[in-house]
Simulated assay, not measured.
Amino acid sequence: MAQLIFNMAVMRFLADHRNFLLTKFFLLASFVGEVEGYILVVTLIYVMFDKTLAVRLALLVLLTMCLNHVLKIIIKNPRPFIHEGTYLQKWAVSTENAKALATEYSTPSGHAMSGSAFYSYLYASVENPFVRIIAVLAILATGLSRPYLGVHYPGDILIGWVIGLLVALVAIKRVDKISDRWNKLSYKYQAAVAVASSLILWLATIAINGWRIDGQPGAFLGYAGFLTGIVIGRPIELSTVNFDPRSSKPLAKMLRFALSVAMVLVSLLLLDKVFRPIADDFSVLGYMLQYIRYTIAGVISIFVAPLLFTKMRLAETNTVGPAEAASRLHLAL
Rank of each mutant, 00 (worst) to 15 (best):
W211V: 07
P78T: 09
A194S: 13
G33P: 02
D16E: 15
Y121G: 01
I178F: 13
V261E: 11
E237V: 01
I73L: 13
D272R: 12
V32T: 13
H69P: 00
V266N: 04
P78A: 13
I213A: 08
L308G: 03
G160D: 05
V131R: 08
L333F: 15
F81A: 09
N77E: 15
A279K: 02
S248E: 14
L251V: 14
Y38D: 03
L185M: 11
I178D: 10
K177S: 12
V41H: 06
W91I: 01
I300T: 08
L27H: 08
R234W: 13
T295L: 11
L149V: 10
A219T: 13
V261W: 08
L165Q: 06
T103C: 00
A98T: 04
A332D: 07
D176R: 11
T52A: 15
M11H: 04
Y46H: 14
L308N: 04
V55C: 06
A141R: 03
T103V: 04
L251C: 05
R246Q: 13
R132L: 07
K90E: 11
M48I: 07
L251G: 05
R146D: 11
T319H: 10
A117W: 02
V284T: 04
S283D: 01
S106H: 04
V175E: 14
A15N: 09
V304D: 00
T310W: 08
F13Y: 15
S114T: 15
F31K: 08
I82N: 08
V261H: 08
G229M: 04
K253C: 05
L4I: 15
V93D: 07
L149M: 06
I74C: 03
L314S: 06
S186C: 05
W211C: 05
S125F: 07
S197V: 02
L67Q: 02
Q216K: 03
L28Y: 07
Y38E: 11
A15K: 08
M254G: 12
P250N: 15
K173W: 14
G233R: 03
L203F: 15
A138D: 12
D244V: 10
L308Q: 06
I39D: 05
A168K: 00
V299R: 04
G33Q: 10
W202E: 00
A279F: 01
S120W: 10
W211N: 14
T319M: 06
L71C: 08
G37E: 03
G215E: 10
R56G: 02
I292P: 02
F303E: 02
R212H: 11
S125M: 15
A102N: 11
R132S: 03
L227M: 11
T107K: 05
V70T: 11
F309W: 05
N19K: 06
E84F: 06
S197P: 01
D280P: 00
L271I: 06
L169M: 12
D156M: 02
F26E: 03
G321I: 09
P277K: 12
S327R: 14
N209E: 05
V93P: 01
S198H: 02
E36Y: 12
T228H: 07
L227A: 12
S120H: 05
A135P: 05
T142W: 03
T23W: 04
G150A: 09
A15R: 05
V10Y: 08
R256S: 10
A332P: 00
L88I: 04
A315Q: 01
M113V: 05
Y294M: 09
A112L: 14
R246T: 15
N242Y: 13
I178K: 07
